[in-house]
């Protein structure tokens, strides 16, 4: 049994939240560069050019890519053969508190009704899975509010099937229009239960843009949905064009014979996430 000190986790989380907010992931940067070549609308290309410049400026100045440095969302895979000396949840929240303060990141967590800011961007949203091994894998996402607001979940009937799923996803992207900062990444969770489908959708957003679902049938569905949303003509920041989304990522799980749960979690172009292992 390996023992990991809670302080070590806090330090790693603190560094990770800052790095993720300042440096754009390589897959996103590559997607911007490709979009600059494939985007058909001049206004859309101009926006993509600004986003590339923004990435460079954030790198040069150390400023976060976006002022909305998000709610701190974590998917943690904890090896069954390790134990944390201390409290894992507290360790992560301490890292968030330190990272958001020292990194000059915005604190966006507030009471849902009084709207009083908690002041330190905690509590983080933490999903914990137990996996084999003696390591802890921490995946962090700075999830912005604008794109989260455009996300939806629904319970379709089994009869609606793939056509119903496709219609709902495309309609959602269409209605969201310019609001979630396109070009977006669309996370789709299919199956599970009412609560599980959105978790699948969010998990899907962690996948690299060039990484399709390992199931070829689901990978083909991702391609079909991406083509459908990109034919909407919304384009970068809603200025028109063929780059409405950079990717559609589907995660699927078995569901009840009576149900077809579906969730669409939209991610803005500033898809800030980072994975570390301890």
């Amino acid at each position: 049994m390996r023992t990991i000190n809670a302080g070590e986790i806090s330090d790693l989380v603190a560094r990770t939240v800052v790095e993720a907010n300042v440096k754009a992931p390589d897959d996103i940067l590559m997607a911007f560069k490709n979009a600059l070549k494939t985007e058909t609308s001049p206004a859309g290309r101009e926006i993509i050019g600004q986003l590339l410049e923004n990435v460079k400026l954030a790198g040069d100045t150390g400023l976060p890519l976006c002022q909305d440095t998000g709610l701190a969302v974590f998917f943690v895979e904890m090896g069954a053969d390790c134990r944390v000396e201390g409290d894992l949840y507290q360790a992560i929240n301490k890292g968030v508190r330190q990272g958001y303060e020292k990194g000059y990141l915005r604190k966006s967590a507030c009471h849902p009704l009084t709207r009083k800011n908690t002041g330190d961007n905690t509590p983080a949203i933490i999903h914990l899975d137990l996996v084999p091994g003696d390591k802890i894998k921490i995946r962090f996402m700075a999830k912005g509010g604008g794109s989260e607001n455009m996300s939806r979940a629904t319970m379709l009937t089994p009869a609606q099937g793939w056509e119903g799923i496709k219609k709902f996803v495309v309609q959602r992207v269409a209605e969201a229009g310019p609001n979630p900062c396109p070009p977006t990444i669309v996370g789709v969770g299919i199956g599970g239960t009412f609560d599980f489908a959105p978790i699948l959708a969010k998990k899907a957003l962690f996948r690299a843009l060039d990484e399709k679902n390992s199931d070829p049938e689901i990978a083909a569905m991702e391609d079909e949905l991406l083509a459908a949303v990109n034919s909407l003509g919304i384009g970068p920041m809603g200025m028109g064009g063929n780059t409405t989304s950079l990717g559609v990522k589907i995660e699927m799980a078995p569901c009840h014979i009576a149900s077809l749960p579906l969730a669409v979690n939209i991610q803005c172009h500033s898809a800030r996430h980072k994975e570390v292992t301890i």
């Binding site: 410049e53 400026l57 954030a58 890519l65 976006c66």
Partner: peptide, 12 residues
């Protein structure tokens, strides 16, 4: 409209 997600750029 200003460009969403270009916060570092607009800050300048």
């Amino acid at each position: 409209g200003a460009t969403g997600g270009a916060g570092a750029l607009l800050s300048q």
